[in-house]
Structure formats: structure tokens, C-alpha cells
Amino acid sequence: MKFIVCSLGLLGVAAAGTAFAQPVLPSEVAFDEYGAVSASLTGKAGDAASGEVVVVERGQGNCLACHRITALDEFPFHGEVGPPLDGAGSRWSEAELRGLVADAKMTFEGTIMPSFYKNSGYVRPGDGYTGDAAKGELEPILGAQDVENVVAFLMTLKDE
């Protein structure tokens, strides 16, 4: 509900119509000065269950590589490179989480956390995990809807 109100409000300002048809391009994501992104990248609500899969899967977000998430204890091996994400949905707003997932470097300058919705500015980008050079235009690591789904999942991580 809140989601719809919020994106409608934005659409009033931005060019209406196009946002629903096409996801926001990685180069056109609007970060505010703290790194938050208020508008949905797709105009479609995120799905937390799909987001959980992205968070767990090694070939997708693989957030567990670096973060511990108690709610996902059934999946083995949580990393320690970043802080635990328990309570992230209480600590951060949806817009802040969208900014963190899209490009955490806009929130934490120089952070080790990868930028998941970005497709330029890399040193020797590869063709996935093959070790070969990337071919053609790069895709961001996660699609726009994946980002929305991950944000929806993170919003479920509330303080006890």
C-alpha cells in the first residue's frame, strides 16, 4: 500500500508512464545525497520470497557470502565480511535499502560490498565467472526486479 502511494507520488514529478513500462537503467538510478533511492526500479512491488532466493544463491546475490542472517539459518555457511543483517528492515528505510542493494558505495564510500545494479566503471570486467573478457554490453549483477525483491526480503528482517 505504502509502496503504491510512494511511487505514484514520484511519478507525478518524473515522466509518468515510462517507469512502469521499462525498468530504470543502471546509469539512471536516482541516489539522494545519502545513497538512498526512493523510487522503485520497476514500478512493481518486490516479492520477499523471490528475494530470499537471490540472497542465498551463490550465482545471484550471494549476500550470505558476507552477511549473517539468522532467519536463513537453514542454509549453511554465513560469512563474516559484512555486519549481520538481522534487523536491517528496522534499521533502514525501504529507500535506503534499495540504495544499498543497488550500489552500496553511494552509502558507504569505498565499501567492500559489490554494487549489484551497475554496469560500467569496472576494471577488467569478465564474462560471468569464466575468467574471459566480458562480451558486449554488461548486465548488472542483479536485474531491476531482483533488486526490488531483495529489498522486500530485507524489509522482513525486523528487530525482535
Binding site: R124, G126, Y129, G131
Partner: peptide
């Protein structure tokens, strides 16, 4: 070295 660079989704 090659494996570690490949794992960053880079051209090694």
C-alpha cells in the same frame, strides 16, 4: 592467482 581474479567476475 588466476582463480582468485576469476572469482571477482573479472577477465583474469
Amino acid at each position: 592467482f588466476k582463480g582468485c581474479i576469476r572469482d571477482t567476475r573479472a577477465e583474469t
